[in-house]
Design a binder for these strands. Structure first.
Length: 568
RNA sequence: GGCGGGGUAGCUCAGUUGGUGAGAGCGCAGGAUUCAUAACCCUGAGGUCGGCGGUUCAAAUCCGCCCCCCGCUACCA
């Protein structure tokens, strides 16, 4: 079976991520990685922080910190939050680590050897007081079209027109407010993507099974024609323009553009992983070193698609070296907070660390994945969240586990009953489960997460329906053996549910295995058939009824959170 | 402005190679049940499928025009 390489878009270093960022790439990638591992497929799941660029420098300055220190702290915060959410990265790296420096410089060098890089001189806004060049977004001024006084250099938020910084009347630095700005010449390296148009177009055309959203974004860029792109910036924090330690003359105060080095970190993070684990990273990334056998799946938000379908492939293909390129690609839309944007500065929305202070990770994981923004932007509301958690997790799944373990304990003791044998009801259940598991597995395989979790919920419901039909609490009055068989069947269902649910609610799944003292790694192997799963326990196995798996969310909690997190 | 995505029950969403009475979950109403977290299970009510026009025996689905929401537009990442 092919090996699977999974990457999640790299979260930017600047601050803890919100629920929208989480469900936009890291969480669906985790669910898929867990699913693949449970299927027994050799899986490598890689992520990292994306640490370079202007926002990191400015945030560090605002915090009164050295950039490197700031990034180190932020990295630890993000890593901790990811761990707490159960994100099962094989490695969570940093784009500022040495392997990415080496590799980025390697790519720039090879691309230049292939004649795909040249120096060009740009004119750009320079802020004398800030002592830095300003990206278009960091220049503000009066819009020449509508007179709005806080138009940005790239676009006017008032009239929506696209602008060039030189168009602005009375421009000033958005960083300091200083009007002491001027145009200055600056030299940069350009990646000659125009020359690669055909190669990229051909490569994109060969990707038959990309989702519609992905394909249309890639094709749009190609249709407009690829443009040569500057891959360096006038910044201090980043990967210096140097090859084998030699700074490039004229580029002493420049670094590579964050979007050039960030995707390279997918590879470099794998190298970091190999340093840690002693494994060979090249067999995952070099088709001449075994990576032909790899299926590479990328997860990202829709804003990232062009960079992953065009820019990063241009780097890889342009090198003419045998690098592995993406096979399947899952892009998600945005999760909004009550229809608007999540915002740190305006205290709108819930961030990863805050979420876990309110409730355990699985509550969030389930709701986010079952309502993932796949076809369109989706709105997160606390009311919807509470309703989904209470109904799906507490009433359907949690209650199922609770009712049957308590019933068994009361009537048969803390041991799986061995009497009786399965009959018609169990045969019907098995048949129904086989069909549902097949559909669920397929939907996970093709990464249709909303559909997959409709299936999973349906599987849980089938458990409750079965109990309703089997009604051991009635049967036991006249036919103890029949009651025993159905209790045994229901207890087996708990283990089956745990295995199937583990990709999305891993913490709870492991609690469910723990009821029976099962080893999660063994017990969570993807079930071959419902029949096999239902015959795991023959009787005599001891168990411990668990505490309630999911507490319900109360209305007054929702009200308090609305207040706290700026719901509208 | 250009491009892309979306507009289907009160809410969140499925549903297009055009075709049996337009679906699910939540919410709501009724019923059944008592093992269970006032939970589970069954039944039901509820929709001019954004608007107008067209093609067709037949349109949520195809075509045209229009309205609304979101995103991207290559120096934010």
């Amino acid at each position: 079976m092919a090996r699977v390489l999974i990457t999640s878009a790299l979260p930017y270093i600047n601050g803890i991520k919100h629920l929208g960022n989480l469900v936009g790439s890291m969480l669906p990638a985790d669910v898929y990685a867990r699913f693949k591992r449970q299927q027994g497929q050799e899986t490598l799941f890689i992520c990292a922080t994306d640490e370079h660029g202007t926002p990191a420098e400015l945030a560090a300055r605002a915090a009164g910190q050295d950039v490197a220190d700031y990034c180190r702290e932020q990295y630890e915060i993000q890593k901790k939050a990811g761990d707490a959410f159960g994100l099962s990265f094989d490695h969570f790296g940093r784009s500022s680590n040495p392997p990415n420096h080496r590799l980025t410089q390697h790519f720039a060098h090879v691309l230049e050897e292939k004649g795909l890089i040249e120096e060009r001189t740009d004119r750009q806004v320079y802020s004398v007081d800030d002592e830095r060049f300003l990206p278009d977004r960091y220049v503000e001024g009066t819009c020449p079209h509508c007179g709005y006084e806080k138009a940005r250099g790239d676009q006017c938020d008032s009239c929506g027109r696209l602008l060039d910084p030189v168009d602005l009347i009375d421009p000033y630095s958005a960083i300091s407010g200083s009007k002491n700005v001027e145009m200055r010449e600056t030299k940069h390296l350009y990646l000659l993507q125009e020359q690669m148009q055909d190669r990229i177009a051909q490569w994109v055309a060969s990707k038959k099974d990309w989702p519609q959203l992905t394909k249309s974004i890639a094709q749009k860029w190609l249709k407009e024609g690829l443009r040569d792109r500057s891959i360096t910036r006038d910044l201090k924090w980043g990967i210096p323009v140097a090859y084998e330690g030699e700074l490039r003359p004229g580029f002493e105060n420049k670094v590579f553009y964050v979007w050039f080095d960030a995707p390279i970190e997918y590879i470099a993070a794998t190298e970091e992983w190999s340093e840690k684990s002693g494994e060979d990273w090249q067999r995952w990334w070099r088709t001449d070193k075994g990576a032909d056998d790899v299926k590479y799946v990328e997860f990202m938000g829709k804003d990232n698609v062009a960079f992953h379908t065009v820019s990063f492939p241009a780097t890889l293909l342009g090198s003419e070296e045998p690098w592995k390129t993406v096979d399947a690609l899952k892009s998600l839309n945005w999760l909004t907070w009550y229809g608007g944007k999540f915002s740190t500065s305006q205290n709108r929305g819930i961030f990863m660390d805050q979420a876990l202070e309110l409730l355990p990770a699985d509550y969030w994981r389930w709701h986010l994945m079952a309502n993932a923004p796949e076809s369109d932007d989706a709105s997160f509301t606390l009311e919807h969240f509470a309703s989904v958690v209470n109904k799906d997790l507490a009433d359907v799944l949690g209650n199922f586990v609770n009712r049957i373990t308590r019933f068994c304990k009361a009537r048969f003791g803390e041991e799986v009953p061995s009497e009786g044998s399965y009959g018609e009801a169990e045969a019907a259940l098995e048949k129904e489960l086989d069909a549902k598991i097949k559909s669920y597995t397929h939907n996970l395989e093709v990464m249709e997460f909303r559909k997959a979790f409709v299936d999973l919920r349906g599987i849980w419901v089938a458990g409750n329906e079965y109990l309703q039909v089997a009604a051991p609490w009635t049967a036991i009055k006249e036919d103890r053996e029949k009651a025993a068989a159905s209790v045994r069947c229901a207890l087996n269902l708990i283990v089956l549910f745990a295995a199937l649910s583990r990709p999305v609610i891993p913490f709870t799944a492991d609690k469910m295995f723990a009821i029976f003292g099962l080893d999660p790694e063994e017990a969570s192997r993807w079930p071959a058939s419902a029949g096999e799963a239902l015959s795991r326990f023959k009787g005599g196995e001891s168990f411990t009824p668990p505490d309630v798996l999911f507490a319900k969310i109360e209305e007054d909690q929702v009200a308090a959170w609305r207040e706290q997190f700026g719901a509208e």
